[in-house]
């Protein structure tokens, strides 16, 4: 699963939705692979408008990427700095979590990721 996807998912337990601790989910024992995908600079720039940057910073750090700047790059930053654009593309689109777990910071529930597919089905006692 892509790092970008983690920006749109949260804990599946209903009671966790209202807690800020349930987002983002925290990767654990993550095995990452790299997929080559062509860069779409304009899409990436527009994407910045819908990312939760703070959550992305947390995810990136937890996955062992170099720390992202405190605030999101602006459109001008990306237009003028090819390295920032490429790094962001690499992180968001090209990096895939194949195995590992996603942990909720509120209830502690762990969701397994296997062969790139995250399983958000809950155990019977949490349904």
């Amino acid at each position: 699963m892509k790092v970008l996807t983690l920006n749109f998912l949260t804990c599946a337990v209903k009671a966790c939705k209202s807690s800020s601790d349930s987002f983002p989910l925290h990767p654990k024992d993550a095995e990452l692979v790299h997929d080559d995908v062509e860069v779409n600079a304009q899409l990436l720039t527009n994407l910045l408008h819908r990312l939760d940057w703070k959550a992305l910073r947390t995810t990136a750090t937890e996955l062992g990427f170099p720390d992202l700047p405190e605030t999101a790059p602006t459109q001008e930053d990306l237009e003028n700095d090819e390295k920032t654009l490429k790094d962001l593309h690499n992180l968001l689109i090209e990096t895939q979590m194949m195995e590992g777990k996603l942990v909720c910071g509120h209830c502690g529930h762990e969701y397994a990721v296997r062969e790139g597919i995250a399983n958000f089905l809950l155990p019977t006692h949490l349904v």
Binding site: F8, T10, A12, K17, I117, F120, V127
Partner: peptide, 24 residues
């Protein structure tokens, strides 16, 4: 091909919209 396709993120296993971050 490129120019026609959007970006597909993932297919995740779950019950309806349970894993969705609200309002997205």
């Amino acid at each position: 091909g490129a120019g026609s396709s959007g970006v597909f993120l993932d297919a995740v296993q779950g019950d309806l919209t349970n894993p969705c971050r609200p309002g997205q």
